[in-house]
């Protein structure tokens, strides 16, 4: 992972070859995007991999967070505020989703005493 990040400057420089500003960070938009992609992929792997529903849910949050990071980065480097404003909505939605999701998990735990997806196979296949 770190090795990958070390290549980021290569990408970062692409945007900054004609820079005139006094302090421009070497790590530009591509680096942020790469980071976001890595987070997203990690979250995705987690959702598919884990059996504990709570952890799966955390991984889903990780995916949403990856999107917000990319959004903020785009917004910053393009100079449009819309992306950053969208983050507000995403955070609100994520919070609501977590609340509902955890309520369902708790309700199910009360009946089944498990949070493992492997044991959630009572619906007929």
């Amino acid at each position: 992972m770190i090795a990958l990040l070390n290549h980021a400057p290569l990408f970062g420089l692409i945007l900054n070859n004609g820079d005139t500003g006094p302090v421009v960070p070497a790590y530009g938009l591509p680096a942020y995007l790469l980071l976001s992609a890595v987070l997203f992929a990690l979250g995705f792997i987690g959702v598919l991999l884990r059996k504990n529903t709570l952890v799966i849910y955390m991984c889903l949050e990780l995916m949403l967070l990856a999107s917000t990071l990319a959004l903020v980065a785009f917004s910053h480097f393009q100079g449009t505020l819309d992306g950053a404003v969208f983050v507000f909505f995403i955070l609100t939605i994520a919070a609501a989703e977590v609340a509902v999701g955890l309520a369902i998990i708790v309700a199910l735990f009360r009946r089944r005493h498990t949070v493992s997806v492997e044991e959630l196979n009572h619906l007929k296949h």
Binding site: M1, I2, L5, Y27, A31, L35, V38, L39, L42, G43, I45, G46, L49, R50, V55, M58, C59, L62
Partner: peptide
């Protein structure tokens, strides 16, 4: 770099 490594490493921890 520090923040990126921190974020990814802890995300890996979640997974």
């Amino acid at each position: 770099i520090i923040l990126a490594v921190l974020t990814v490493a802890s995300a890996l921890l979640v997974v």
